[in-house]
Simulated assay, not measured.
Amino acid sequence: MTAPNRAPIGVFDSGIGGLSVLQSLLTALPHEHFVYLADNGHAPYGEKTDLFVRQRSLAIAQHLIEQHHIKALVVACNTATAAAIHELRTHYPHLVLIGVEPALKPAAQSTRTGRVGVMATRGTVGSEKFARLLASMDPATHFEVKACNGLALAIEQSTLPAHAEQAQAQVSQLLRQYIQELGEFGSAPGQMDTLVLGCTHYVFAQEELQQLVGGEVRLMSTGEAVARQTHRQLEAASLLSPQAAPAQAHGRVALYTTGDLSGLKAAAHRWLQLPAGDCHLASTI
């Protein structure tokens, strides 16, 4: 039987967006092994009901515990964290659990103009968890929040070879639309000088977003903060893996999808330089 500290860390998202978090985890935890599950077959979560997202989150957690014997679970999805993290903690009180949330706190610390833009899914911005987070912020910082319907799905579909060109055009169109609707970005008084990427998918559009808002605007995501928190929690639970890791990422991570395998393969290669052989179907969850 595998020693608890040598067990893998589970990571899941509604699709490929959580690969941006996995990227940070691989860097911050070089001696750990990971099992990533993309629930593409039921994506996008951001436009589903809270009940549906909770049911999927519980089913995936159970699968990762039973099939892969994970020692920790990173919920690499803002929508799933908002809808299901409390229920997951209730069901699995002994499992190290890490969620994600939009980076409002670091954005408030970073801004010089006192104005911050937030892009997230409808499921995230409509959640009680997000409402509490927003209410907890210093009123001196103004947050302009935009629910970006369709954007996560378009980014997801841009990895599918058969739909890539059309989906990428839609991504570009939606980015321009939502940035325009948010308002004026820049470093002058009254402008937003910080943009929070409140969905892990949006990280994969950050180059185009940076061009749209200008180089002086800071983009804030959650991957590095989640990786640091995961390290802290594993260390506190004495579950960090012994320092005997492979020299490269290949072999340290297995990726699964409930949807289109070609899309996961393309995304894993494009953003993490992982080979197709690391990607598998998990259609029974």
Rank of each mutant, 00 (worst) to 15 (best):
P4E: 08
P4S: 08
N5D: 14
A7T: 00
P8Y: 03
F12Y: 11
D13W: 10
G18W: 06
L19T: 03
L29K: 05
Y36F: 15
L37R: 02
K48P: 08
T49I: 08
T49W: 01
D50L: 07
R54I: 14
R54W: 03
R56P: 08
S57I: 10
A61Q: 02
Q62E: 11
Q67D: 12
I70L: 04
A72F: 00
T81W: 01
T81V: 05
A82F: 08
A83S: 12
H86N: 13
E87K: 13
E87D: 14
R89C: 12
T90Y: 10
T90K: 11
P93C: 09
I98M: 05
E101S: 12
P102A: 13
S110G: 07
T113D: 11
V116W: 13
A120K: 10
T121H: 07
T124V: 12
V125H: 05
S127P: 02
E128Q: 09
D138W: 09
F143P: 11
V145T: 11
N149K: 04
N149T: 01
N149Y: 00
N149E: 06
T159M: 02
P161D: 03
A164H: 10
E165N: 10
Q170G: 02
V171E: 10
V171W: 03
S172A: 05
Q173G: 02
Q173R: 15
R176H: 14
R176Q: 15
E181M: 09
L182I: 15
L182H: 03
E184A: 10
F185C: 12
G186N: 06
P189F: 02
G190Y: 02
G190A: 03
Q191G: 12
V203W: 09
A205D: 01
E207Y: 00
V213P: 07
L219V: 13
M220V: 15
T222N: 15
E224P: 01
V226D: 14
V226N: 15
R228V: 10
H231M: 11
S241D: 02
P242N: 03
A244H: 09
A244R: 11
Q248T: 13
G251R: 14
V253H: 06
L255W: 08
S262K: 05
S262Q: 13
G263N: 03
W271Q: 08
Q273I: 00
G277D: 15
A282P: 10
A282T: 07
A282G: 09
T284R: 15
